[in-house]
Design a protein around this nucleic acid. Structure first.
Length: 421
RNA sequence: GUGCCUAUAGUUUAGUGGUAAAACUCCUCUCUGUGGCAGAGGUGUCACGGGUUCGAUCCCCGUUAGGCACCCCA
């Protein structure tokens, strides 16, 4: 029985990465790997499925991710598993589980893989999406790591040739100063006009009012107290150093005291990187000194970033600099007749072993058809091997541009082909 | 989860209340000894389900998917 239409379609918000998209993804993988190696990070791959509790605790019960975006799986044992909605918690889990606190600190790890969130798809937002991320776990809560992480995220986008980047950065303080700020903000909002959503937000997750884009909130938001003025001495000093290190690295940034981020585990530094003209963050990250503690492990400072890979692709397309396919094969092997076809296999094999990128059309038998295929593939040379050549132990090399052709002996034809490329 | 818009061939699109068309692509043939050309043919349950109608690809409703925005986030 034929499958239904729906069964023949990828599920909503999850897409095939087709051959034509592969050059982009190959480059993304390459940049991830190279950057990881350059900065002395080690690769880690964690399972796509994790216990649900891992994210409930760490990302935040009130966050959208946990409230409504997780793909939850019930197992036969009645465990609740989820398709991971983000990777930082998984990496931190691995750090704890494998006792990485007992190797030289900090531990630097990078990953590349898919994440799952049940959201409404739109530009730059799909349900299965990919991130490359870099995490520094352990050691001190040293601002130099924050700066390095920002630099890496920036470098990543630079290496991918995304133009006109803008770093927005903020500090959201620590356990000591954030509650004080939160109270200030709540008090401030109580007596002022704001939109419906913000009236709710101010009760549930006050910091989020700073993200609001409603007209009603504009004036109130503009006059709202800034976190940066409420930072405690330690956090202020920390943030100041982060900025100084960024200056030292020659990275320009924009202070954005409305930048808060949605996940509970962030503390102090938070940042996002945008490409001009598109209001979607291409990369983001920050410090998460409380994450391991939230997991019930020993409090351990950490900082990290993630790059939204689909978004990098969208940004490149918008900027007209999409990554394009590699050049096509340049040599096309053509056979004529059954005897030649049989012998062709080992000749093609010899070319491949010799490092020549050769394409064939062994499935076609007509000479014209094969030449047409060679032409279509943009080959520069055609190698023509027929009955006569098989007897003479030779092969014809035809230049497809000029039409010039010449017969060479098989004993040295691989070299002859190479010479002409 | 909400709102608006959209759905015709592999792709980009036209079109009509009387069951479809163009361009490009792909496949086959003309064509087992020389390509780009040409000619001929082929590739569609007009997204799915229901309703109105003598008749629906077209009008109406629902579903699904896609796009955009909200929300949120990478």
């Amino acid at each position: 029985m034929a499958l239904s239409k729906k069964a023949l379609q990828s599920v909503k918000g999850m897409h095939d990465i087709l051959p034509k998209d592969q050059p982009l993804w190959e480059k993304l993988r390459k940049v991830t790997r190279e950057l990881g190696e350059q900065y002395n990070f080690e690769r880690i791959d964690t399972p796509i499925v994790e216990p649900m509790a891992l994210f409930e605790r760490t990302v935040g019960e009130a966050s959208d991710i946990v409230e409504k975006q997780m793909y939850v799986l019930k197992t036969k044992d009645d465990d609740s598993l989820v398709l991971r909605p983000e990777a930082t918690a998984s990496v931190a889990r691995a750090y704890v589980e494998h006792g990485m606190a007992h190797v030289p600190q900090p531990v630097k790890l990078y990953y590349f893989g898919p994440l799952y969130r049940h959201e409404q798809p739109q530009e730059g937002r799909v349900r299965q999406f990919h991130q490359a991320g870099f995490e520094i776990i352990g050691g001190e809560s040293d601002p130099v790591y924050d700066a390095q992480i920002v630099a890496m995220a920036y470098r990543f986008l630079e290496e991918m040739k995304v133009a006109k980047l803008e770093i927005r950065i903020n500090s959201i303080g620590c356990k000591q100063c954030r509650p004080i700020y939160r109270k200030k903000l709540v008090d401030y909002y109580k007596s002022r006009p704001s939109c419906k959503t913000c009236k709710r937000r101010i009760l549930v997750n006050p910091l989020r009012v700073l993200d609001c884009k409603e007209k009603e909130c504009e004036v109130t938001k503009a006059g709202a107290p800034a976190m940066i003025d409420s930072l405690c001495t330690l956090c202020r000093g920390h943030f100041k150093l982060v900025l100084e290190y960024l200056d030292e690295l020659g990275l320009s940034y924009m202070l954005d005291n409305h930048l808060v981020r949605g996940l509970d585990y962030y503390s102090r530094t938070v940042f996002e990187i945008f490409a001009e003209g598109w209001d979607a963050a291409l990369a983001g990250g920050g410090r998460y000194d409380y994450l391991l503690e939230l997991m019930g492990a020993k409090a351990t400072p950490a900082v990290g970033c993630a790059v939204g890979l689909e978004r990098v692709g969208v940004a490149l397309t918008k900027q007209g600099t999409a990554v394009t396919a590699k050049p096509k094969p340049r040599v096309h092997f053509i056979h004529i007749g059954d005897l030649a076809k049989k012998k062709s296999l080992s000749l093609i094999e010899a070319l491949r072993r010799g490092g020549v990128h050769v394409e064939e059309s062994l499935g076609k038998d007509s000479l014209k058809g094969q030449l047409a295929a060679a032409d279509k593939n943009g080959a520069e040379l055609a190698l023509i091997f027929g009955q006569m050549e098989a007897f003479e132990e030779s092969i014809i090399i035809r230049d497809l541009k000029t039409g010039a052709q010449e017969t060479v002996l098989l004993v040295k034809f691989v070299e002859a082909v190479k010479k002409r490329l």
